[in-house]
Every structure is written in C-alpha cells, then in structure tokens.
Amino acid sequence: MDQLNSYLFVAAILFSLGVFGVITRRNGIAVLMGVELILNAANVNFIAFSRFGGMNFDGHVFGMLVIVMAAAEAAVALAIIINIYNNMNTINVDQASQLKQ
C-alpha cells in the first residue's frame, strides 16, 4: 500500500475494463458506465502521482475537476440517451446510427 506501482496497476485494470465495456456493450447506458470506469482510473492515477510526488496538492485539484467534468458528462449523456429512446424506441448504439429520422 506504500508503493506507487500497486495503485498504477489498479488504475490500469480499471482502465482496461472500462475500455472493454465501451467497445463491447451495445446499451448506451452500459457504455456510459464504461466511460465512468475510465474516468475513475485516470483519477486514481492523478491522486497517486500527487501522493508519491512529494504530497503536493495539484493532483487533488485536477482530480476534483475530473469529477466535475464526469458529472456534467453524465447529465448530458443521459439527456441524449433519453431523447434517443423517445425518438427511436431503443438505446442500442448500433441501431441509433442516424442523425435524423
């Protein structure tokens, strides 16, 4: 728990699983969950580098900005997904391939 490598490995696993979710899922909300995993992995890296780089707090600031950006992204993405569902009656990202009906 006092080694940078263990945190980086956890973040790498989270990132890989997030990429796997994004490229294999077809449901739009499941794709969004994969994106959240990727953002969390990046955040773990920020905080870990901040802790092992002499405990300066710059990484904490960037971690907080990433969390704010994730909140904005989730709100807009869910609004878009609900609109797609209302218009096309599916949130399958393979079928929702048209810009207009």
């Binding site: 728990m1 904490h60 971690g63 907080m64 969390i67 909140a71």
Partner: peptide, 20 residues
C-alpha cells in the same frame, strides 16, 4: 475507488467522490 483515495491521503477527494 473512494477507499483508495483514503489510502492516498486524499480525504477531501474521497468525500467528493462519495457525494458526486
């Protein structure tokens, strides 16, 4: 992930993670 932040001495970020 919030627990990992606690292990990394980032108590504020852990709280923000739980809240947001």
């Amino acid at each position: 992930v919030a627990g990992l932040y606690v292990f990394l001495w980032a108590d504020f970020i852990a709280g923000v993670q739980l809240l947001v």
